[in-house]
Amino acid sequence: MEITRLSRLALNQEGFAFDPLTGNSYVANSTGALVLEALRVGKGPEEIALHLTEGYEVSLEQAALDVGEMIEQLKYLKLL
């Protein structure tokens, strides 16, 4: 997965992200921030979904859907 654009984001622990190239900023909730961070270090969707089931009360199927939705949002924002 292409992570170059994601990796350039300045992301803090509260889920605030700033893109130094475009000047755009984004806010993710705690789960979103976790997914973002995982994508940035190169983890795949399945691995991230599995990781979510360990920290949150969510089925693997639902977590996979949520991760997929997040990836679509990032693509829409041209970050992926």
Partner: peptide, 21 residues
């Protein structure tokens, strides 16, 4: 810099520094 807020005359009133190669 990127313009974040402009006046009715398109003058910058808020902006942010960027590094656009």
């Amino acid at each position: 810099a990127k313009k974040l807020v402009v006046s009715s005359q398109n003058k910058i009133f808020a902006g942010v520094t960027i590094r656009h190669e």
